[in-house]
């Protein structure tokens, strides 16, 4: 499979992206436009992104901000596996935002679709409206409740989503809310890359400011062929795939 490596072998992509990030957070928030680029030729479906997201956001069973769709193409022995990592697309025109009856979810100034857990009534209309299945409902399930002697500490440790310290407890938000990937907004504001970007073992995921022509993501989109999921719906995703 021949392709031109956009990142020179000498350069560490994560270091480059950290520098991009630093430049971006120094700009006024409304001038940033966060985007993600996923190189499908590099993804090995190890699910490190899925797991690091779980660790960062302490999401319960059934709640997944990002996941990897694995499919087999062809018939044995002529088969090939295809992998499609799927975070939230952070659409420019998010259909989930339109349908929220109480305005509990919106696109913030940096272009990230966020949810106010203290406002969301849990009607789940946004789940039906998302064309990517990127939203999940927090039913209140636990990994280690009932089936183990005690609730594991990783389930009760506080999370810092949206910069708010929250401990997950029965019947308290975010339980009963819809939850989704927010590009680890809490990390971005601290100058850190989203967890899934940091932990991708194949360097298949890139992140940065799409408004910055010097950023790695902008460079990749200039140099490589990219596509977006379900573009025909007019959602205008900010997650791009290289193939």
């Amino acid at each position: 499979m021949a392709f031109i490596p956009a990142v020179s072998q000498m350069e560490n992509a994560n270091v480059r992206m950290m520098e991009d990030l630093e430049r971006a957070v120094q700009k006024p928030p409304e001038e940033r436009r966060w985007g993600m680029v996923i190189d499908l030729t590099k993804c090995v479906a190890c699910d490190a992104c899925t797991v690091s997201c779980k660790a960062e956001n302490k999401t319960p069973p059934g709640v997944n901000y990002t996941l990897v769709i694995k499919e087999e193409v062809g018939e044995y022995p002529n088969v090939r596996a295809t992998f499609l990592p799927r975070p939230c697309m952070q659409c420019e025109n998010p259909p989930c935002v339109e349908v929220c009856p109480v305005g509990a979810t919106w696109k913030d100034v940096e272009g990230i679709v966020v949810i106010d857990y203290d406002v969301c009534i849990g009607c789940r209309y946004c789940i039906t409206a998302c064309p990517y299945g990127a939203r999940t409902f927090d039913f209140g399930d636990w990994y280690t409740k009932g089936n183990t002697p005690m609730l594991a500490p990783y389930e009760t440790a506080p999370t810092f989503e949206y910069g708010e310290e929250r401990v997950r407890e029965d019947e308290v938000s975010p339980i009963g809310n819809v939850r989704k990937c927010n590009f680890c907004i809490q990390r971005l504001h601290e100058g850190l890359l989203p967890a899934c970007i940091n932990d991708c073992i194949g360097r298949a995921r890139y992140f940065g400011d799409l408004n910055d022509p010097e950023s790695l993501v902008s460079e990749l989109l200039r140099e490589r062929y990219s596509f977006k999921l379900k573009e025909e719906l007019g959602t205008s995703p900010k997650v791009f795939y290289l193939s």
């Binding site: 339109e98 349908v99 929220c100 009856p101 109480v102 305005g103 509990a104 406002v119 969301c120 009534i121 849990g122 009607c123 789940r124 209309y125 409902f137 927090d138 938000s173 339980i175 009963g176 809310n177 819809v178």
Partner: peptide, 23 residues
């Protein structure tokens, strides 16, 4: 009873989003 937070139903009155058919 289908709502995730039954106690918050009043928000549809106090802060409706009229771009939503549900509101």
């Amino acid at each position: 009873f289908d709502l995730g937070h039954m106690g918050r139903f009043y928000e549809v009155y106090s802060r409706p989003n009229f771009r939503s058919m549900m509101a």
